[in-house]
Design a binder for these strands. Structure first.
Length: 395
DNA sequence: TCTGGGGTCCTAGGACCC
DNA sequence: TCTGGGGTCCTAGGACCC
């Protein structure tokens, strides 16, 4: 049976949500109606565009580019700071509405959901009716607009929601692929990024249609698995399921761009410790253990280096992971000024999956207890309340 | 011009085993 | 010693998404 899939995408999510929140707080200016962007803190060297209003877009401003560029393109652009916990609140309220229509919802990101309505379509209603209903309800009840893509698989639903914006419903059924999708530049296809475009162009592929009509074997020869995937996407083929059961994370990472380049190893180690505490805290919250520790640095010249190592035993201990991370940093660090530091843990497994060794040492058990006490205090008083003695000297 | 942070997946090369 | 080949695991790096 043909699957009934929707993709719901919030229009200019961070900016729309900021606009709604401001109006709710009594402000009169709706920042969706002016040239405006959401941006990171430039003083902290995090000044990139995270979202833009429709008018800002007309000035050629792009998500991810430095705010500095945005100002050149539009000198009177208004910049607003981001607030992730507020975004989560709006994301949850959207999810809440969508949950009324099906259990099979996949949160693809903070502002995008896939829905599988195959077994959930009310009698006498079509998929497209539900799409319009959702769009109108979200606008009325939550105050922001969404695009809804209507199709028979996830890829086509996602491509459809990306058509004309904002506040629109688009279908992309199989018979519409040729007229609606094939004329688009190949860069519009999901998973075709800026590194692939020149390679595809060398093969005379400019539009999604060009890609679809190319010989699949030739693409596989040139791109491997990736070649097969984008060829299938161009032809509207995608069998992936809407993943509605909470998937466990495969890795957990945190990184920071430093306010200025660091060259002092002790300072860098302090940052590593803070990052290790962050990732292990998140790891313990989901009741998992990690087998692999990864440390990444970005130099002042934007070169990225990383080292990783598999541990003998999976762990969630801050101390053990920090010890490993410090070793990895020593291997990596050649004295070049550092712009960014990141810590990741990978190869995660469920705590209960692990056979507890009879020789499970007391040292680790003691560490676990300490970690738990600290976690509980963080729960109670907020994440930043507790800082290790080593970090207390930092401002 | 001055370039965030969170993820997933893939690939290539080397180590090691039989 | 100039010498095989297949399989698996690990690491570093990179592409892509939001």
């Amino acid at each position: 049976m043909e699957r009934q899939i929707l993709h719901v995408d919030v229009n200019n999510a961070f900016l729309s949500w900021t606009a709604v929140e401001r109006l709710k707080n009594g402000e009169t200016l709706d920042i969706r109606t002016i040239p405006a962007i959401i941006g990171g803190d430039e003083a902290q060297r995090k000044g990139v565009v995270l979202a833009k209003s429709t008018i800002a877009k007309q000035f050629g401003i792009q998500t991810g580019e430095p705010i500095y560029f945005a100002r050149k393109k539009c000198p009177n652009i208004q910049v607003f700071s981001s607030n992730h916990s507020m975004y989560e609140k709006y994301s949850n309220s959207l999810y809440h509405i969508l949950s009324e229509y099906t259990d099979k919802i996949e949160r693809f990101s903070i502002d995008e959901c896939f829905m599988d309505l195959t077994s959930y379509l009310p009698k006498g209603k079509k998929l497209i009716d539900i799409a319009y209903e959702i769009k109108e309800r979200v606008k009325k009840e939550l105050g922001f607009t969404v695009n809804v893509g209507v199709a028979n698989n996830k890829l086509l639903a996602k491509m459809a929601s990306d058509f004309q914006k904002p506040d629109r419903v688009h279908t992309l059924f199989e018979k519409e692929i040729e007229t609606k999708m094939w004329k688009l530049p190949v860069s519009e296809l999901f998973m075709v990024g800026k590194k692939s475009i020149p390679k595809l162009e060398r093969m005379q592929i400019k539009t999604i249609g060009d890609l679809a009509k190319k010989d699949e074997k030739e693409l596989i020869r040139n791109f491997g698995k990736y070649g097969r995937m984008i060829w299938e996407y161009a032809n509207g083929k995608d069998n992936s399921e809407v993943i509605y059961i909470q998937e466990k994370p495969k890795g957990i990472g945190n990184s920071v761009t430093l306010p200025y380049d660091y060259s002092d190893i002790e300072k860098i180690e302090k940052v590593i410790l803070a990052l290790v505490e962050q990732v292990t805290y998140r790891l313990r919250k989901v009741n998992m253990l990690a087998k692999t520790v990864n440390v990444q640095i970005k130099t002042n010249e934007f070169k990225v280096y990383s080292h990783q190592r598999k541990l003998d035993m999976p762990t969630s201990s801050t101390k053990i992971i920090y010890k490993e991370a410090k070793k990895l940093l020593e291997e990596l660090y050649k004295g070049i000024p550092i712009r960014l530091i990141g810590v990741r843990i990978d190869n995660l497994c469920e705590k209960h999956e692990v056979q507890i060794s009879l020789f499970d040492n007391k040292q680790e058990e003691k560490q676990n207890k300490i970690d738990n006490v600290i976690d509980n205090l963080k729960e109670k008083y907020g994440y930043n309340f507790i800082k290790r003695a080593r970090n207390l000297n930092d401002k």
